[in-house]
Design a protein around this nucleic acid. Structure first.
Length: 426
RNA sequence: GUGGGCGUAGCUCAGCUGGUGGUAGCUCCGGGUUGUGGUCCCGGCGGUCGUGGGUUCGAGUCCCACCGCUCACCCCA
């Protein structure tokens, strides 16, 4: 043990340039979602623990082991959100959004928390971008959500994505199928790994997720839910696919695709970037028509998805496609006369008021160091003021591209810089 | 939570079977150019060798524990 500190295990410090990439990614998502009619929703980072416990389902690891729970000074049982959906649906019900035009479309971006083993691409505090459309069971909504998610990835320049799609039917279809699946598992208990046997009672659907080859071989013979969905859910799914096909969105049907949270119904999907290894899932979503009822609301259909910003960022970095925030510096103030610094810094501030990006040396650098810094920040122009210029109340404005410099009176400097920048932008 | 690998300067890394921490590269600052920039040359700043114990005359090097990173299981974003 030392007397110094480290960031808690599983947390990330967002520093430049990655902080800029993160902001650009979220900004692109927000803009795209807004174009599709989504508006921003920010719900609390913590909620009553019961909200998540009720919605995620008992079999879910997210609730069983991974939730950050705590009791506050008022003895309230709270939990840091492990995902967005429950909080968004809670807010929809609490604020009577069912009276607005449906579906209500909301996007969010922010931190979620899960106490899981830390690995590359899996953190305890992580960032999700999220979108939900609540209040319509139109299959076009499912397709809108998938299109928003895939469109965002495409806009970021991410290549090599794999979209898997499935339907898990309605709740009413589920029980008869699960009985069938349990019966199948019971017949093969001997040929199957321990974890699969455990899933038999917990959540038999997850048995398909096993990585044990022998178990996989067995599960390949198992009955599949897609073959046991009711007529309505099947028709809904066909229609979703029509909407996707018309958009040219490529996907693979995966009848074993089951998502980790129990509240899903009908359409489910996942997007993976396979090169990421064990944490290849960069986004996933599904329809959750029964969720609102679970938390005391009226029957309300809904669809949503989430994407892991850190994982998308890893994928983009691997493809050297990290979005950057365009660095900009219209003028770097190189002040070599110490007496002139307060005045020149005031002029710099006035230029900022006019909308220009300006910087000056703030570390006592020598002349060479200052112009090097100007070059480093990509300054379009450098304003030079030494003893000689200061005595005459002028400065030199140097064009950093051409190297040409002209003398400008200090009184005219801000207007001059504004004109130059305005002309350059036009 | 369970196994494997790793941990030397801000970053990337040398350091052979234990024998005094590298003029190493990059970055940063200064000088060459007494006030003009991505190159070049010179110089400088910068290290409790992850932390704590142990073995030893002597530990960056060997042993143990802890912390952190990483890969897999698991889970999922």
């Amino acid at each position: 043990m030392t007397d110094s500190f480290q960031a808690p295990r599983g947390t990330l410090d967002w520093l430049p340039p990655r902080s800029g990439a993160r902001r650009a990614m979220i900004g692109a998502f927000a803009a795209r979602a807004e174009r599709a009619g989504f508006r921003e929703a920010q719900t609390p980072v913590f909620e009553e623990q019961g909200l998540f416990a009720r919605t995620a389902g008992a079999s879910s690891e997210v609730v069983g082991k991974e939730m950050y729970v705590f009791t506050d000074q008022g003895d309230r049982e709270l939990a840091l959100r492990p995902e967005f959906t429950a909080g968004i649906v809670r807010a929809y019900l609490e604020h009577g959004l069912s009276r607005e035009a449906q579906p209500v479309r909301l996007w969010s971006a922010g931190s979620c928390y899960r106490y899981a083993a830390v690995q590359r691409g899996r953190y305890r505090e992580f960032t999700q971008v999220n979108a939900e459309a609540i209040g319509s069971d139109d299959p076009a909504v499912d397709a809108e959500l998938i299109a928003l998610q895939v469109g965002w990835f495409r806009e970021l320049g991410l290549e090599g994505l794999a979209v898997r799609l499935n339907t898990i039917g309605d709740r009413a279809d589920r029980e008869p199928y699960l009985a069938l699946l349990r019966a199948f598992l019971d017949k093969h208990l001997g040929d199957v790994a321990d974890d699969v046997r455990r899933q038999r009672d917990l959540n038999p659907l997850r048995a398909f997720d096993t990585k044990d080859p022998a178990s996989q071989a067995v599960m390949a013979q198992a009955p599949v839910i897609a073959d046991h969905v009711g007529a309505e859910a099947a028709a809904h799914f066909d229609r979703v696919r029509e909407f996707l096909d018309a958009r040219g969105i490529a996907y693979v049907l995966d009848p074993t695709l089951v998502r980790g949270l129990d509240y899903y119904s009908r359409t489910t999907w996942e997007v993976a970037w396979p090169e990421l290894g064990a944490q290849s899932g960069i986004g996933g979503g599904g329809r959750y028509d029964g969720l609102a009822e679970l938390i005391g609301g009226p029957p309300t259909p809904g669809v949503g998805f989430a994407c892991g910003v850190e994982r998308v960022l890893l994928a983009l970095a691997a493809q050297e496609r990290l979005p950057g925030v365009a660095p900009r510096c219209d003028a770097f103030f190189m002040v070599l006369a110490d007496a002139a610094r307060p005045t020149l810094h005031a002029l710099m501030e006035a230029a900022r008021d006019r909308g220009l990006a300006c910087e000056a040396d703030l570390a006592g650098r020598a002349a060479k160091g200052q112009i090097k810094q100007a070059d480093r920040v990509g300054a379009a122009r450098t304003v030079v003021c030494g003893d000689d210029e200061w005595a005459r109340r002028v400065c030199l404005v140097r064009d950093m591209t051409s190297g040409e410099q002209i003398e400008v009176a200090l009184d005219d400097l801000v207007g001059h810089l504004a004109d130059l920048a305005g002309g350059a932008q036009a």
